[in-house]
Amino acid sequence: MMRRPLPPAERTAGPVVVSGVSSDAHTWNLVFLHLLIEECGHAVRNLGPCVPPDLLVSACLDAVPSLIVLSSVNGHGHRDGLDSIRAVRAEPRLAGVPVVIGGKLDVTGELAPERTRRLLDAGADAVCTDDTGVHRLRAILASRPAHTPLAA
């Protein structure tokens, strides 16, 4: 797993957006991440599976997230994730929002370094594909200000 320093947290911290990528239907990963992130003290907007890049961007503009967590396990994540990250990075209003991607991102069981590199070059802040991924995500969450939900 590789990473770059995260951009500073926004002052007004929104929820964490959890999302699948366009061709991936798996949801247990999303349910798990949703619970995990909430338990770390953050509100979650879970967009569900099969989220195309334009839907991801519009949902993020709506949610003003403090962090975007992309998950894919169907083996197409190295391509679909790239499309998602590029779309987010092409939107100036989401410029400061870090993006983390993880799961099983290709069909070989071992993501090639150049595929990781491409995701990072496109603007991912962390690519989590091994056992340490969840610890890494926890650390990232701990470094973000927890979202205070509006009075329920």
Binding site: S23, G75, R79, D80
Partner: peptide, 22 residues
């Protein structure tokens, strides 16, 4: 999965550059 979700352009692109699909 590309064919499953009806994204035939993505399937064609992957076949075109020899990416292994699921």
């Amino acid at each position: 999965s590309y064919t499953r979700v009806g994204d035939l352009a993505a399937a064609a692109a992957a076949v075109g550059d020899d990416t292994e699909l699921n």
